[in-house]
Amino acid sequence: MSLIVDKVSYKYSTGTAYEVTALDEVSLEIKDGEFIGIIGHTGSGKSTLVQHLNGILKATSGTVYYNGQDIYDKDYDLKDLRTRVGMVFQYPEHQLFETTVFEDVEFGPKNQGLDEKEVAERAYDALQRVGFPEEYYDQSPFDLSGGQKRRAAIAGVLAMKPSVLILDEPTAGLDPKGRNEILDMIRSMHEKSHITIILVSHSMEDVANYVDRIIVMNDAKVFLDGTPKEVFAHSKDLEAIGLAVPEVTYLMLELKEMGWDVDTTVTTVEEARKEILRAYEVKKSASK
């Protein structure tokens, strides 16, 4: 049970002077229950890549397998794939349209042809999972704050019960607290229901704190693929392609260069605190 991307290339404006290769023979496997971050700067191909995972874009060459089946087979049910691999686009709140939050979330399952009771149950369940306050279920989605709108929009995709959830820049434009709330919500959703989560982001700090695996895209190819620690160990390579490792990782690298005995694979503030504290105690007792 997994998603396999097999030598996928995607070109647009082919045959013209403006031909662009957005994906260049990309191969990777995404296993069930993984929590993945896809990083890359604008134009690296990260959004193009995820749009292949539920068949919104069709590869120019290569193919995508979902649970062992080629999604480009003539009789493959793409509509079904799209309910299994749910996609939350950038600024998903722009897609809210119903008169109440609850009806908006019901739209997806309703289109799946489920009966009224099941639709309502799904919507209720999805709103619970994103931590949306019950007293606003009957509010117009347009009267909500930015963070709440985004929760409602994510619930709309969750209500279709996808096994894979792709979120493209889910925190763009939110203030720091709102950003942490959304990321915490995604993490707890992953922990509770074990669905596969793919987070597209350009913020290294965000991703380092949450995901188990990072895929770095650059120039239409997979540049690095591994755990956050493995990926951030390549700080020089990342800089060369215009990405940065978290500030605290830089700090540890610089301290190490100055002779501090610290672990340079640190990626979060809490880890850095512990490491510096440990090294500091060693230093202090040595100087006594």
Partner: peptide, 29 residues
């Protein structure tokens, strides 16, 4: 006030709490 501080400032703040003599308001690495 729903704001965050830069990672380095936060780390300095946390280190101070843990007993390392670091001043508040550190802005740069």
């Amino acid at each position: 006030h729903r704001m965050d501080v830069p990672q380095i400032t936060l780390l300095a703040h946390e280190l101070k709490r843990s007993g390392v003599p670091v001043p508040e308001g550190i802005l740069h690495r």
